[in-house]
């Protein structure tokens, strides 16, 4: 469960989010869609309490929040195995050196199996592929059993196959465990088969709801403030500005309308 109520967030001289509202029932798979700089990371970090909002309310229900940050750069020589990263998800905030614990080990093993990472559990995490690292970060985020999982651009920089694998894994978690997933992305297309909610960010404002309610020319046009076409080609959705729209305001010249997919 996640409710965001008239949330406004700004940094000095930069109002990033204005009056953002949405509600995700437990078990939602929600895409947080917007161009670079539209405030996706800021919204997620505000939900986590890492950024203090100017106004508004956030309710996250019980059970804690799991978080997969944007583009973690793991040093290739970092002396951590995949399973060490997952174990730090359990007790990384504790002081002192961990003592060997069978129950901790069981929890890590079953989490690794859950995300399909048993095979590379003992490898150096910096040596893993992008998709494998994402699985490990998801396991790290989930190992304490949160009911809400926030992922910041987990699909960026992954090859097509890894994208499909990570999405299938998240879908499984939503279906089997009724976890609520809020996942940011600049391209909604890979998510279309699985997401049942969308929060679309542009110019600091948001629209949200079921995908077919939001990804419509009329809704997005009023969000952007100029005419937007939603085009379906070969099963993919393209969100494009009408021809000539870019030239109408300087704002648009700097922030051209978001094309969600370049096939």
């Amino acid at each position: 469960m996640l409710t965001v109520d008239s949330l406004s967030v700004g940094f000095p001289g930069n109002q990033v989010l204005q009056d953002v509202n949405f509600h995700l029932p437990q078990g939602s798979f929600c895409g947080l869609i917007g161009t670079n700089g539209s405030g996706k990371t800021t919204l997620l970090r505000t939900i986590l309490g890492l950024v203090t909002p100017d106004k508004g309310k956030i309710e996250t229900g019980v059970g804690g929040i799991g978080y997969v940050p944007q583009k973690i750069q793991l040093d290739p020589f970092m002396p951590l195995r995949a399973r060490d990263v997952v174990a730090l998800g359990i007790d990384g905030h504790h002081l002192g050196v961990p003592l060997p614990s069978p129950s901790r080990r069981r929890a890590v093993d079953s989490m690794l199996a859950e995300v399909g990472a048993t095979e590379f559990a003992n490898r150096r995490v910096g040596d893993l592929s992008g998709g494998q690292q994402q699985r490990i970060m998801i396991a790290h985020a989930l190992v304490r059993g949160p009911r809400l999982l926030l992922l910041d651009e987990p699909l960026a920089n992954l090859d097509i196959r890894s994208v499909a694998e990570v999405i299938a894994l998240l879908h499984k978690l939503v279906v089997e465990q009724k976890i609520t997933v809020l996942l940011s992305a600049h391209d909604m297309n890979p998510l279309l088969p699985v997401m049942n909610q969308i929060v679309y960010l542009a110019h600091g404002r948001s629209v949200s709801g079921a995908v077919e309610e939001v990804v419509r020319s009329s809704v997005l046009s009023s969000l952007y403030g100029y005419h937007i076409d939603v085009i379906q080609v070969h099963g993919r959705v393209l969100v494009v500005a009408a021809v000539g729209a870019e030239a109408r305001t300087t704002e648009m010249a700097h922030e051209p309308v978001h094309v969600t997919s370049i096939p």
Binding site: P69, I72, D84, V85, L88, G92, H93, G96
Partner: peptide, 15 residues
């Protein structure tokens, strides 16, 4: 442990 967690990502440690 805190230093290792921070080395993965400081935000993960903060939350």
């Amino acid at each position: 442990r805190p230093l290792l967690l921070i080395a993965i990502d400081p935000d993960l440690a903060t939350i």
